[in-house]
Simulated scan of single mutants.
Amino acid sequence: MKFAYLIEPPFNDRTESGDIVGCDVDLARHVFAELGIAAAEFVETSFGELLPGLNDGRWRMTTGLFATDLRREAADFSRPIWALPDGLLVRDGNPLGLTGYRSLAASETGILAVIRDQFQHHSARKFGVPDDRIAVFETYSDAATAVRDGHADAYASVARAHAGYLDRHSGLVLDVIEVPADEKPPAFGCFAFAKGDDRFREEVDRVLAAYLGSPDHRRMMHRYGFSDREVDLVVAAR
């Protein structure tokens, strides 16, 4: 059993000692234990390889992804495992006074960093950020570094990922601006599977249905900074 992930705390991360941690990998470990899978291998990859790797058999399940209509053409998805608003990572003090995608589009000069083909890349275009003001990166750390070094004015990802990154890098002089729900509501993330792997996906969903919202699950999510309100959104999506 191979599970693909990318470095994006608090979902997945690697400690200085090399341990793989995060709410997605911890949840996957619980699922595998309940299914009697003792020899799971966690494979670090890039965002752009997650779905292709499912379809060519490099791994059987991936970290949580937004289950968009386009992605559903390439893969199948579990029930939701988290629900999160987007956020903008900006320099300290928010020099451009950004409040969300619309404000960045209206700024005329603001440069937005995104990860290639992530949901936020498409959201930026939808809200009018022109392509010549979207800087595309392959990894979270590269996009965050661009903001830190002044090569981009903001980096769009999920707000929780930004908060997790800043928790791990407390010396960085950066802030997180949560995109308001009336501009873009929180979106659901799900584990991804290859098309046709229905029996395994259904087994995973069975374990998730019994575990999500339980006291043990809430304690795990609290460790990674999630609130009960955020957990309740997932429980209600059953």
Rank of each mutant, 00 (worst) to 15 (best):
M1Q: 02
M1P: 04
A4C: 10
E8T: 07
T15K: 07
D19E: 09
D19G: 00
I20A: 05
V21D: 03
L27D: 05
A28F: 12
A28L: 07
R29M: 02
A33I: 02
E34K: 15
E34H: 04
I37H: 05
A38Q: 15
A39Y: 10
E41Y: 02
F42H: 03
G48P: 04
L50V: 00
L50I: 00
L51E: 10
P52D: 02
L54S: 09
N55Y: 09
W59I: 05
R60T: 05
L65D: 12
T68V: 07
R71G: 12
R71H: 11
E73M: 03
E73K: 11
A74L: 10
A75R: 09
F77L: 12
S78H: 15
P80N: 02
W82Q: 06
A83C: 15
D86M: 09
D86T: 14
L88H: 00
L88A: 01
V90D: 03
V90R: 06
R91N: 14
D92S: 13
G93W: 14
P95A: 13
G97N: 12
G97F: 01
L98P: 11
L98F: 07
T99M: 04
G100D: 10
Y101L: 15
Y101S: 10
Y101C: 13
Y101M: 13
R102Y: 11
E108V: 06
G110E: 09
L112T: 14
L112F: 08
V114G: 15
I115Q: 03
Q120N: 12
H121I: 04
H122R: 15
S123I: 03
A124M: 00
V129F: 08
P130H: 06
P130T: 00
D132C: 14
R133P: 11
A135S: 14
A135T: 01
A135Q: 12
V136G: 10
V136T: 11
F137Q: 03
F137C: 06
E138N: 11
E138I: 06
T139D: 06
T139P: 13
T139A: 13
Y140S: 02
Y140L: 03
S141N: 08
S141T: 13
D142S: 14
T145I: 10
T145P: 00
A146V: 11
R148D: 04
D149F: 04
H151L: 02
D153Y: 05
A156E: 01
A156V: 00
V158M: 09
A161R: 04
H162V: 01
G164Y: 11
G164M: 07
G164K: 07
D167Q: 14
H169C: 00
S170V: 09
V173P: 01
V173G: 03
L174R: 05
D175C: 12
I177S: 02
I177E: 00
E178A: 15
E178H: 13
V179A: 01
D182M: 05
E183I: 05
K184W: 05
F188D: 04
G189Q: 09
G189E: 02
A192H: 02
D197F: 10
E202D: 15
V204D: 07
V204E: 10
D205Q: 07
R206T: 04
R206N: 06
V207D: 09
V207Q: 08
S214W: 12
P215T: 12
P215R: 07
R218S: 00
R219E: 08
Y224Q: 02
R229H: 11
E230D: 07
V234D: 11
A236R: 12
A236N: 06
R238L: 15
